[in-house]
Design a protein around this nucleic acid. Structure first.
Length: 477
RNA sequence: GCACCGGUAGCUCAGUUGGAUAGAGUACUUGACUACGAAUCAAGUGGUCGGAGGUUCAAAUCCUUCCCGGUGCACCA
């Protein structure tokens, strides 16, 4: 029934675009859906489930499956340098895991639920017409977000209005839900631009709202296991002396961050069939994940030990100030990438003035973005990163452009050679540099494995720098 | 206060899970573009691996303790 319905929808191009669907294939008792992109999956899947169908995320792989969570920031908030780390490190671990035979599901645990969306919806209905939501939807959304917070500091009554609208949203008010969905879509379209630029790809968007109707069963389960206790009006799980209790339900009855993450973990295990769950989230969330994993363990899930918090250090300014969207001292990812590309274009204009403007733009993008990504991956992820334009945009020495430069040199050599090298007739290795280079190249598999084992992309990045250095010596001698 | 994470060259950082004389980049000093592309290479200066004990044939790495920095510690996510 669903397949027929979807196939009809796909026939009408307008509707097909809205669904993001490319193909519908009934297969026995199942229906295979192929999507053009991830954006609309979550919503459509939800609709299908409401229709009573069971949903599985499957593929043809035979290896073990890892679900990696590397999320974008909240709806209506622009990506900043901090979110750069989660996505870039997550994508790198994903790529490395795939070399180890794992099948990977990249998950975007989008922050799409909470009182702030009531506030935003309220602001949209009040001031929305003053903004250009058609021409610059995301900018308008963010401006609205900032404006609401400004006005709310002057008039605290607005916060109450926002909370009221959120309550209506929670109760299923269709009109507000429509506005909320629009916010989500606007944000995902905006985020997608930067993911494309960074080469970051998610398989599924599972926002916090996805778990709304699963929270009750989490509570029931904890209740059944006898873990839930009332404390100061709230419901908590006590975890022992070395950790504060984990809050499951607020005294006003609302659920919390941890409740959602519990539901999410169970979903990843049971429905996405994860053998390993990785959460690529900042180090400031360490206690939270320790608590969530502990609750899972106490609830009798032996797979709790397969859940890992892949923490990373935070960006901070030179004076040690932490970045914060609210305080406005934050640097947007878009600006960093833009600056990196611009600076690269300037370097190219000086070093290689003969290039056409298209070639220059292409190379500036590859090199500029590569520099930012490599700069983020080359150091141990647990360390804090001091934000410094000069460091991030430095293209000399141990950097992404250095690795790219050496790659280009190799390609150039092969091109000039003009033939496919005969790998079966290997000349004796006499030079010291030759032997060292070959030895190093032969340790590649070992390095990949070590990099995966510690979930440390920097092991691979450091190795690449070493290979480039040794190759360069060999190449010049 | 308690817990967790960091401290390695002037600066930014590696050090593959205990192994040989602790390594890169950057900065500074010098040299190499008429021969495979100088976003490069070569050479030099620069270290009591935060301090002190301990385990070991062997410690930047493990243990104890102290100092400094960061993060977190119940109804935000």
């Amino acid at each position: 029934k669903i397949a027929t319905h979807l196939q009809e929808a796909i026939g009408k191009s307008a509707e097909s675009n809205a669904l993001g669907l490319e193909r519908v294939q009934p297969a026995g008792g199942y229906v295979n859906l192929t999507f053009k992109n991830d954006i609309f999956q979550a919503r459509l899947f939800k609709a299908i489930q409401d229709d009573g169908a069971k949903l599985g995320y499957s593929s043809s792989g035979t290896g073990k499956r890892i679900v990696i969570d590397y999320s974008s920031p909240n709806v209506a908030k622009p990506m900043h340098v901090g979110t750069l780390r989660a996505t870039v490190i997550g994508q790198a671990i994903r790529n490395i895991a795939e070399t180890q035979g794992y099948e990977v599901v990249g998950l975007n645990h989008l922050g799409d639920w909470g009182v702030q969306f009531g506030k935003l919806a309220w602001a949209y209905r009040k001031w929305g017409h003053e903004y250009d939501f058609k021409g610059a939807p995301f900018q308008s959304l963010f401006d609205l977000y900032v404006r609401f917070h400004d006005e709310a500091t002057k008039d605290p009554a607005l916060d109450a209005e926002g909370s009221l609208v959120f309550k209506q949203l929670e109760q299923g008010d269709k009109e507000i839900e429509k506005i909320w969905k629009m916010f989500v879509d606007i944000t995902l379209v905006e985020d997608q631009k930067l993911w494309d630029l960074l080469g970051v790809k998610h398989d599924l968007v599972r926002g916090e709202s996805f778990y709304n109707d699963r929270l009750k069963s989490v509570e029931d389960l904890l209740e059944k296991r006898g873990l839930l206790t009332a404390s100061e009006g709230a419901m908590v799980v006590h975890l022992g002396d070395d950790m504060p209790p984990c809050l499951i339900r607020k005294s006003d009855g609302a659920s919390l961050y941890a409740t959602r993450d519990l539901a999410s973990a169970i979903y990843r295990k049971n429905e996405l069939n994860a053998d390993l769950c990785l959460y690529v989230v900042g180090v400031d969330q360490t206690l939270h994940f320790k608590q969530v994993f502990k609750v899972l363990e106490m609830a009798g899930f032996d797979w709790a030990s397969d859940c890992h918090h892949i923490s990373f250090g935070l960006y901070r300014f030179k004076d040690g100030v932490k970045m914060s969207t609210r305080k406005g001292n934050v640097i947007f990812l878009e600006d960093i990438l833009k600056q990196a590309i611009e600076r690269t274009a300037e370097v190219i204009a000086v070093k290689n003035p003969g290039l056409s403007s298209e070639e220059r733009a292409k190379i500036a993008q590859d090199v500029g973005v590569g520099a930012v990504i490599f700069g983020d991956l080359v150091f141990d992820r647990v360390k804090n990163v001091e934000f410094d334009w000069d460091r991030i945009l430095s293209f000399e020495g141990d950097s992404g452009p250095y690795v790219q430069y050496m790659h280009v040199r190799c390609q150039s050599l092969l091109r000039k050679f003009g033939r496919t090298p005969n790998l079966s007739s290997v000349a004796p290795l006499v030079e010291k540099d030759e032997r060292e280079l070959i030895r190093l190249l032969m340790s590649y598999d070992e390095i990949l494995e070590a990099s995966f084992r510690g979930f440390k992309p920097n092991i691979l990045a450091q190795y690449l720098l070493e290979v480039c250095g040794v190759f360069s010596r060999f190449y010049h001698n």
